[in-house]
């Protein structure tokens, strides 16, 4: 029998079984807030016990790269190193070692491990638009926007693909600003 409890998200009161998986909202017995809870089988599933790896009994058998005294069971899908059951990480339907996971995350090779991306197109747009409030800074930010936009034109943006519309708009605004400053400066010099 599992001691897992699902609690009301408003007052944290444990909810009895007859509150779960109802199609409509029911009032929490304590705070009376309308609550709806949907549970899935993994709530009652016990986690699999991790294997610490089999010891190497026969010398001619392959051993794990990270644990020479343990038997290799699978090669790493990325680097090819032999791995014992302790070192084997199942990820993205592949068997990967911890070093490849780490380098994949750092070098952004494994997409599902990315948890942050810089939005260069949004930064370019802010750089073009926000200084216009104060007018004078645009003499510096307009060329900076043009450089930044071309520099990061092909840089990866968000995980959900975006169009280049922000870059294009930023370039248009920066171009207009540069044109306006050029006219102003040439007029004042003449």
């Amino acid at each position: 029998m599992s001691s897992t409890l699902i609690r009301c998200s408003n007052c944290n009161t444990p909810l009895a079984a007859h509150f779960l998986n109802k199609p409509d909202f029911t009032n929490c017995p304590r705070c009376r807030a309308p609550v709806r809870t949907v549970v899935y089988p993994s709530l009652f599933r016990h986690p699999d016990t991790a294997s610490s790896g089999e010891k190497l009994l026969i010398e001619t058998e392959s051993s794990c790269y990270f644990h020479p005294k343990k038997k290799a069971v699978v090669p790493c899908g990325l680097c090819g190193r032999f791995l014992c059951s302790l070192c084997d990480i199942e990820f993205n339907d592949q068997h990967i070692c911890s070093s490849c996971i780490e380098s994949g995350k750092k070098k952004r090779k494994i997409r599902n491990l990315e948890n942050n991306r810089v939005l260069y197109d949004s930064i370019a747009l802010y750089l073009a638009v926000i200084p216009m409030i104060f007018i004078w800074p645009t003499i510096l930010t307009a060329p900076a926007t043009i450089y930044y936009s071309f520099r990061h034109w092909k840089s990866p943006s968000g995980i959900i693909p975006r169009s280049k519309i922000r870059f294009i708009f930023a370039l248009m605004m920066a171009g207009l600003q540069v044109g306006a400053w050029s006219l102003l400066l040439s007029h004042s010099l003449l």
Partner: peptide
């Protein structure tokens, strides 16, 4: 200026509660 991502795999989701 940047995005943060969090992933929840279907096999790991235990419940969804709403109030």
């Amino acid at each position: 200026y940047e995005e943060d991502y969090k992933r929840f795999y279907f096999r790991d989701i235990q419940a969804i509660t709403t109030h």
